[in-house]
Structures are given as structure tokens and as C-alpha cells.
Simulated scan of single mutants.
Amino acid sequence: MICAVAIFGWTVLALVFVDELLAVAAFGVWGWDNDPRWLLVWALPAVAMAAWFFFASPKAAYGGAVVRPVAKVIVFGLACLALADAGHGGWAVSLLVFSVVVNALALLPSIRVLADG
């Protein structure tokens, strides 16, 4: 039988992944509202994914104890600003709150063990 703590932990980790996808989508939304649309709608999410890959992901080549959290704050912060600038202020606030909550939960020791394993 699977422990309730493990179920909660894996649920939080899945929500962290959803949060990352939402941040990338937010950059696409902003790109859609600005010119040149055809370039920004693809380029901004690609840049966000590259930044995440190199600096914020669990196995980031250039991540570390300081760089990883700073990169996460920058990516999620800019994603929220992008949504707000695109005219979706409510969604921007929702993304910000969701990001803070799930990433804070992911720092719990019982969940970090799952992510590191």
C-alpha cells in the first residue's frame, strides 16, 4: 500500500511540473499579444525553457544552491508580469500564488527526498 505522504509528495511534484508548463504558456500568451507575433509566440517560451533547463531544473548544468532559486524566481516572476502585461491580471496573480505555494511545498523534506531520488 502506498503511503499517504508519498501520494501527497508525488502530487506536489506533478503540480510543480504543471506550474512550469503554465509559466512557459504565459510567455506564449505575451508573445501572441505583441509583434512580431509569429516569432515571439515561439521564441519566448523556447528561451524560458532553455533558461529553466540550464539554471533551474533539478539536473541543471549551471544550477546550484543560489542560482537555481534565483532562476526560478526570475522565470516565474517574468511569466506573471507577462500575463499581467497581456491584460490577464487575475491569471497573473493566480499563477504567482500557485507558484509560491507549490514550490514552497516542494521544499518540504519528505517531498525533496522523492525529487532527489
Results as ranks from 00 to 15, higher is better:
Gly9Lys: 05
Ala43Ile: 05
Leu105Cys: 13
Cys80Ala: 12
Asp19Tyr: 09
Val70Ser: 08
Phe76Arg: 11
Asp33Cys: 13
Ala6Gln: 01
Gly117Glu: 12
Leu44Ser: 04
Ser99Met: 10
Ala65Arg: 13
Val70Trp: 04
Leu107Val: 04
Ala86Met: 00
Ala115Gln: 06
Pro36Met: 07
Val102Pro: 08
Leu78Ile: 10
Cys3Met: 09
Ala51Phe: 09
Ala6Lys: 01
Val29Trp: 06
Ile111Arg: 05
Leu95Arg: 05
Gly9Trp: 08
Val113Gly: 01
Leu114Val: 14
Val97Glu: 07
Gly64Leu: 11
Leu44His: 00
Tyr62Phe: 14
Leu105Lys: 07
Gly9Ala: 14
Ala86Phe: 03
Ala60Ser: 09
Ala61Met: 15
Val24Gln: 12
Leu96Val: 08
Asp35Gly: 02
Arg112Gly: 11
Ser99Arg: 02
Pro69Ile: 05
Val5Asn: 06
Asp19Phe: 06
Val29Cys: 08
Asp35Trp: 04
Gly9Asn: 05
Phe27Ser: 03
Val93His: 00
Lys72Cys: 10
Ser99Gly: 15
Thr11Val: 14
Lys72Ala: 06
Ala82Cys: 10
Ala82Leu: 06
Trp91Ala: 15
Ala106Leu: 11
Leu78Lys: 00
Trp42Ser: 12
Gly64Met: 12
Ala26Pro: 01
Ala4Leu: 13
Ala51Ile: 11
Ala104Arg: 14
Trp30Arg: 08
Ser94Glu: 05
Gly64Glu: 05
Trp42Pro: 04
Arg112Gln: 15
Val29Arg: 10
Asp116Ile: 10
Val101Gly: 09
Arg37Asp: 07
Val101Cys: 06
Val101Asp: 11
Ala92Arg: 03
Ile7Ser: 08
Asp116Phe: 12
Leu21Ser: 03
Ala26Lys: 02
Ala43Trp: 01
Gly87Tyr: 01
Ser94Cys: 09
Pro58Ser: 13
Val29Phe: 08
Trp38Asn: 09
Val70Ile: 10
Leu96Tyr: 05
Ala106Trp: 02
Tyr62Glu: 02
Gly87Cys: 08
Arg37Trp: 04
Leu21Asp: 01
Val29Lys: 03
